[in-house]
Amino acid sequence: MQTEMKAFLRRHGLLAGFGLFLISVALSADAFLTPGNIFDVLRQVSITGVMAVGVTFVVITGRLDLSVGSLLTLLTVIVVDQHNTSGPAMAILITLAAGIGVGMFNGVLVGLVGLNALIVTLAMLSFLQGLVLFYSGGSNVNVQNAQTTWFAVFGRHDLFGVPVPALIFLVTAVIAAFVLNRTIFGRQVFAVGGNETASRFSGIASRWTVFWAYALSGLTTAIAAVIMGSRVMGAQNTIGQGYELTVLAGVILGGTSLLGGSGSIWRTVLGITMLGFIQNGLLLLGFPYYVQWLVTWAVIILAVWIDLGAKRGRILA
């Protein structure tokens, strides 16, 4: 009985804690559970959410992608700048291509060459931040015809009363979940993360699996950049700063293991959304905005701790 209780808490403890938190915030801040606020949170969460969907693939292969924060900045700058010069359609295409390209570059280094994922993507984080400044010459860019462009759809409009970015998040998640759970590629991602040697003995080109996971992560970050650009109608040189950690926190809060081999898109969606509501709730309770950094820290440590404990077999205690 006691062990069951413990097992339950370990599995659903974070979720239960979150439920309690929601209830207490709702009781003390009237604005919290209003449709307006909920949609705000969803709008906010959709950017990190879309990114986290791609990063989930990388994490399940047992690797990390910390470059997505600067990549988001770079791609947002690109989409806004290109919008002014080449028009929205072209801007979006270029952005998606650039995102996939950077993802593939990570994929070559980590997957094909076999370098350490943490180092490669951390270095890429720095490199891309530099590239942003080269590209923008240090100045912020803004969409010139912000009031008239159809580019506004992605970040600002509603469809059937729901914010479009939230719908994009949902559609991305549905497609990604399908790819991960039902396709050959998805199965390979789990296999490589679970046991790379056994995957090779089973004829799986594990290095290419890793490569494509990074490409996907680049693609989803590009989609997030389109939403970001459209929402802000401009881009500062630091717009994506720190996003890599928020994304990672969401992924592991959902319960996808950093050790690879297990996880799911829906868990990531849940994790990222929970994180969004926690941060929003703290703001509404009157905490300054920067507590969100502390929350990110706490979430990462807690989630990793629980994960490791489970892996080491302490579930038996």
């Binding site: 296999a191 679970g194 046991n195 056994a198 799986i204």
Partner: peptide, 21 residues
């Protein structure tokens, strides 16, 4: 354990792993 199986996966997914296509 090292070369034969992905331990986290079930028996079914392990069985079909070399022949996904």
């Amino acid at each position: 354990k090292e070369q034969g199986l992905v331990l986290m996966m079930g028996g079914m997914e392990n069985t079909t792993l070399p022949h996904l296509a």
